[in-house]
């Protein structure tokens, strides 16, 4: 029953399999089809008992760090805002195996893009670290 985080990106990650323009340049009908597909994935995963949560993130971001004693927090947009990695959203699933997480991610990646063609978008799959099991050997 491990949990996995599936990540979508605005940019970054491996070389796109088939480059596509940003979503704000798509035909509105294609956007609607894309979102309907993702809603359907959520319904399907709830139905299979594997859905945990999901959120889309806006592209705006700030980096912030502790500024030191009596100093204000330091805030920046990051060194290379146009080239760095930018997460667009995440979904968490609770599945029986890593293979099943890959299967779900691949299905998401088949989502329709411009013209209704499959997007082939790279989806990052990350295992959630589980708390240590309360039985220890040694």
């Amino acid at each position: 029953m491990p949990k996995y985080l599936l990540l979508k990106r605005y940019r970054g990650g491996p070389e796109p399999h088939r480059p596509f323009p940003p979503m704000d340049q798509w035909d509105p009908k294609d956007v609607e089809a894309h979102l309907a597909f993702l809603r359907h994935v959520t319904e399907m995963l709830t139905e299979t008992g594997e859905y945990v949560d999901e959120r889309a993130l806006t592209p705006a971001r700030s980096f912030v760090r502790y500024g030191g004693e009596d100093a204000a927090p330091v805030v920046t947009d990051g060194p290379h805002p146009e080239t760095s990695d930018l997460v667009a959203g995440w979904m968490m699933v609770d599945v029986d195996s890593y293979e099943r997480a890959l299967e779900i991610a691949a299905h998401i990646s088949s989502e329709p893009g411009p013209g209704g063609e499959p997007l082939h978008e790279w989806i990052e799959v990350r295992a959630v670290m589980e708390p240590g099991a309360p039985i220890e050997s040694a």
Binding site: K3, T46, E47, G49, E50, V52, D94
Partner: peptide, 15 residues
Amino acid sequence: AFYVPEATMAQRVSR
């Protein structure tokens, strides 16, 4: 207990 939504667990049970 498993940190999943109630709807997900309900579906797991009924499936």
